[in-house]
Amino acid sequence: MAMNEYYAMNGEVGIHYFDSMAGADEKLAPVVVCPGLSETAEEYVDLLQELAPRRCILLSFRGRGKSDTPKSGYNLAEHVADIEAVIESAGLTDFHLFGFSRGVSYALGFAHKHSTAVRSLIVGDYPPEHRSMPDGWAEDYIHNYLIPFNRTANIRQDAVWGIQRESMFIPLNQTLPMPLFVGRGQLEGSLIDDTHMNLYRQMSTAIQEKQYARSGHALESGDKKAFYRDVNQFIGDQDKFN
């Protein structure tokens, strides 16, 4: 499915995103995708293809991919504002919102603030909270993950240090009015435990849960096809009731 590139301006910060509006089925509500900590819009093109002919918007948060890297502004509010800028630029008023890993906290922050705009929320293996990062995290993340796995182009080191410096713990388990899909891995490394899952169950009366036997945190690895298929089915079901 064809997609075009755009930049939304959040103040002076340019936020890069892909939009598959051209050729999309206008009768289907769009999906906005919030990638994980060091992920970019490019890494979700296969999800866009899975959801076709539904319109998809894939964004790269500040400091990631082709988006700008400001010297400061890396707590929850600034990332929520990145989503807001993309939503305004794309002209969206009613859409499904997808978040994976730390992108879940950004998506939750947006959904709590703009609940009437979000038709449904999809959560990929992350608890309902925005986490602070301890001293030493940034150096470890850069040298033991980004550099060895050739991901320094995905997220700039200035952004990593900014996240460690500015992020604060913020609970995000307030009640949500929209339907909720929660996908969690069953293997070691999953970031959703039973306590987190109970919080999600208390957040929405219309919740669908899926567990993936071949995955820990990285649902997009061993269970990617099943995860994306389930997401597509869930979104389609929500459109039937709206």
Results as ranks from 00 to 15, higher is better:
Lys71Ile: 11
Gly73Gln: 07
Asn75Cys: 12
Asn75His: 13
Asn75Arg: 14
Leu76Thr: 07
Ala77Asp: 13
Ala77Met: 12
Glu78Phe: 13
Ala81Tyr: 03
Ala81His: 01
Val86Pro: 04
Val86Thr: 04
Ile87Cys: 02
Glu88Lys: 15
Ser89Ala: 14
Ala90Pro: 02
Ala90Tyr: 02
Thr93Val: 13
Asp94Ala: 12
Phe95Val: 02
His96Asp: 08
Leu97Thr: 01
Phe98Ala: 00
Gly99Ser: 07
Phe100Ile: 13
Phe100Leu: 10
Phe100Gln: 15
Ser101Gln: 08
Gly103Glu: 08
Ser105Thr: 13
Ser105Ala: 15
Tyr106Ile: 15
Ala107His: 12
Ala107Gln: 11
Leu108Asp: 10
Gly109Ala: 01
Gly109Trp: 06
Phe110Lys: 05
His114Trp: 06
Thr116Gly: 05
Thr116Ser: 14
Thr116His: 14
Thr116Lys: 14
Ala117Cys: 05
Val118Phe: 07
Ile122Met: 03
Val123Ser: 06
Val123Cys: 07
Tyr126Asp: 06
Tyr126Gln: 00
Pro127Asn: 09
Glu129Val: 15
Glu129Asn: 11
Arg131Lys: 13
Met133Tyr: 15
Gly136Glu: 07
Gly136Trp: 05
Gly136Ile: 03
Ala138Thr: 10
Tyr141Met: 04
Tyr141Asp: 01
Ile142Val: 12
His143Met: 08
Asn144Ile: 09
Asn144Ala: 09
Tyr145Phe: 14
Ile147Val: 13
Ile147Gly: 01
Pro148Ile: 06
Asn150Pro: 07
Asn150Ser: 14
Arg151Pro: 07
Arg151Thr: 07
Ala153Tyr: 04
Asn154Pro: 04
Asn154Ile: 09
Gln157Asp: 13
Ala159His: 00
Ala159Trp: 05
Trp161Cys: 04
Ile163Trp: 11
Gln164Val: 06
Arg165Lys: 15
Ser167His: 08
Phe169Gly: 10
Phe169Val: 09
Pro171Ala: 04
Gln174Trp: 02
Gln174Gly: 09
Leu176Pro: 00
Leu176His: 04
Pro177Ile: 06
Pro177Arg: 04
Met178Arg: 13
Pro179Lys: 11
Leu180Phe: 02
Val182His: 09
Val182Ser: 04
Gly183Ser: 02
Gly185Ser: 10
Gly185Val: 02
Gln186Ala: 03
Gln186Glu: 13
Gln186Phe: 03
Leu187Thr: 03
Ile192Met: 05
Ile192Lys: 09
Asp193Leu: 01
Asp194Cys: 01
Asp194Gly: 05
Thr195Arg: 11
Thr195Leu: 12
His196Phe: 10
